[in-house]
Design a protein around this nucleic acid. Sequence first.
DNA 1: GTTTGTTCGTAATGTTTACTAACAAACGTG
DNA 2: CACGTTTGTTAGTAAACATTACGAACAAAC
Lengths: 415, 415
Amino acid sequence: MTATETQRGPVTAEPTHTTSVAASDLLTVPFAGAPIFTRSRALRPTSKVLPEHARSHNRALVLQTLYTAGGQSRADVARETGLTRVTVSDLVAELIAEGLVVELGPREGVRPGKPATIIDVDRAAFQILGLDLSGHEVFHGVVTALDGTILERVSLERAGATGEQAVELVESIVERLLGRATAPVLGIGVGSPGVVDPLGVVRSAPNLGWFDLPLQARLAARTELPVHVANDANVAVLAEHGATPLDDLLLIKIGHGVGAGLIVGGRPVIGGGFAAGEIGHVVVGTDGGPRCACGKDGCLEAWLAVPRLTEQLDSLAGEPAAVQAARDEILREAGRRLGIVLAPVVGALNLTEVVLSGPAELLDGPFHDATVDTLRQRTMAVLNRDLRLRMSEQAEDVVLRGAAVMVLSGQLGVS
Amino acid sequence: MTATETQRGPVTAEPTHTTSVAASDLLTVPFAGAPIFTRSRALRPTSKVLPEHARSHNRALVLQTLYTAGGQSRADVARETGLTRVTVSDLVAELIAEGLVVELGPREGVRPGKPATIIDVDRAAFQILGLDLSGHEVFHGVVTALDGTILERVSLERAGATGEQAVELVESIVERLLGRATAPVLGIGVGSPGVVDPLGVVRSAPNLGWFDLPLQARLAARTELPVHVANDANVAVLAEHGATPLDDLLLIKIGHGVGAGLIVGGRPVIGGGFAAGEIGHVVVGTDGGPRCACGKDGCLEAWLAVPRLTEQLDSLAGEPAAVQAARDEILREAGRRLGIVLAPVVGALNLTEVVLSGPAELLDGPFHDATVDTLRQRTMAVLNRDLRLRMSEQAEDVVLRGAAVMVLSGQLGVS
DNA sequence: GTTTGTTCGTAATGTTTACTAACAAACGTG
DNA sequence: CACGTTTGTTAGTAAACATTACGAACAAAC
């Protein structure tokens, strides 16, 4: 872990905040003259907070404000964040010194008062590497700008590589991407299949023959850059969260396998065994189903993984209209199955937004509609009136973009 | 909202922290000489943090430390929290001034050095009111000490009261509890059926005829005390979380209806429509099932609400051994149904601990075993090796104790 | 009995942080 | 041109925690 050697000061968890709704749920009582401390419904503080942590938080807040609505003045930022102009100026000076923020000159247009100096995140100051290892045939990598714009692409055929060979493939992609980067690299984000723990150790990715592989540490040692590794679906949901910053979001990623990424209360869900989202081998319904590679009957993956769907569709023949009808029914049935599995999750978490990621030609028609219908039929109507199920807007690049978001969030506290 | 008028200073959300595992997932990079801010995987800072917020947090940390492992010296607390002895002394002085902490004299036993002064949370300094409105026949209320010990009980027959009448019943319980309290009351916690928003407005509780009822505000206005209202199952899970402080916890509350309370990543799940845990009307399986009051077939509640189970069991007659066998099969079938619904939730969240709350005579035998078996059969074996399903240890008092925890957590940041 | 080393709690001081107050600069308006 | 407005900065203040230092109290060893 070379990268960790370079850390400054004690490494402590950073504070986060609850939503504004929860925040308003606060009462203070001057009981018996004793002002009693009040806080939101967050449980058990677990570590101390120093002034410098507070500053870090406020710094990230300023950066976030500029990131989401760039091209503002310091005074604008002050109004939006609630910090004073003085404090904002101070934080911005620090950000400018680090090259993350730039002054863009005076504001256009005519207004009374001293003209404002527009500042913005320098989206060209740093670049990010994003890797997607979830492809069965190909590993993808990109160089992005700070705003997630994809600048360069590198894809390498996996050619069945597993174990150490697959790691070397990853390292090779990283090397090539680094070669193509035209600005300092902020960090490397990797979306890997399988179970990945918070330290970036791939606990288990059978397809790649990886078990307890310290991928994060290896890449960090080799590049001396910050590296973040997480499960591909968990990474993908970050990309969608970046687009629609809701508090709760479920992304279903359908490809060679089926996985999910989940954000609850504005925070990614990891899972007790770091395997949150691994729903591919949950059994669907009570009427059997296709035999799965894992040995069980009726696993979600056995129902609707892409190979299974295409196989079914390819076997169709005959009258075009009849083929079309059969095709629709196959997809509808798969969509229903997804709805059956999701219903308890949507109900238990009271989710409002579910995103589908995968081949649009398979998912964006009868499949999608059947999933929605099934979800509505199987959950409480009143509660899920405003449930939305939509296709991912990022198409093939969800994981890549999510990997960039992961780095952005991890390094700068911004997304 | 009389209570809110008395609040001191700006009310802002308090910082919380991620787990120690996630905290270690931090890297800092002195890239190009620029120390880049680093934080955990929490997204989007939403509000500023002032020094006083940091102090509040640390104050709660000290209190929490004393609460969970009381009878320590200031130096002990300093070591455990990472704060210095000086800071701890300062915070403790504040807590002592407010009556929350007391000195208990010098430590027993022989050790070198100056003998420590033992301090502890004064568990008798304040009391808490807890209310459970989830009973179909009876509303329960208790007075508890700060540690959750139940000191007094008040129960009133509901006698079918709904709407305003039911509210008056609640107010009556509160009045009586206040009369029996023998110490200043820290606050009032209420577990209500139905959908409750974070401001304590009961959005919808059909059984009680409550719709958009601002219960929290009404009780706060009447008592001038801090009041916290939440869904009964969501409250109940707090009680269990108090007992086993895991990061993820699911509680299934089976009574007249079926509901769930969920803690993910150490924080209670609210849900986009404030209806998290409302799984009673999720359809189970794909083979129909009993007709539910809501009109659907095979709702979870139709399968395993207590009235439905007892009705089935009561109808049994004949040979004792045969009755016993039939009884076991009925319970097993119900348990299986619960397992079917929970499997996707357990899988998606990678839960390690699920708690059953309800009549032990129904749930603690074949029902429990069938649920576990079904869960294991329907989820990925490897991932859920260490899944535990256990009965609640709090029996009838889960909601009441949880209500107390809610107040404790909301007012003092402790649980 | 004395010395030594340890531990506890407190004082005093310094650093960091963000706030308030005040102000100069730059601009439109009457 | 005087005046009000807005911006960004400077100066000073208050809060919070760390560091350093110290007296008090005790155990253990001599």
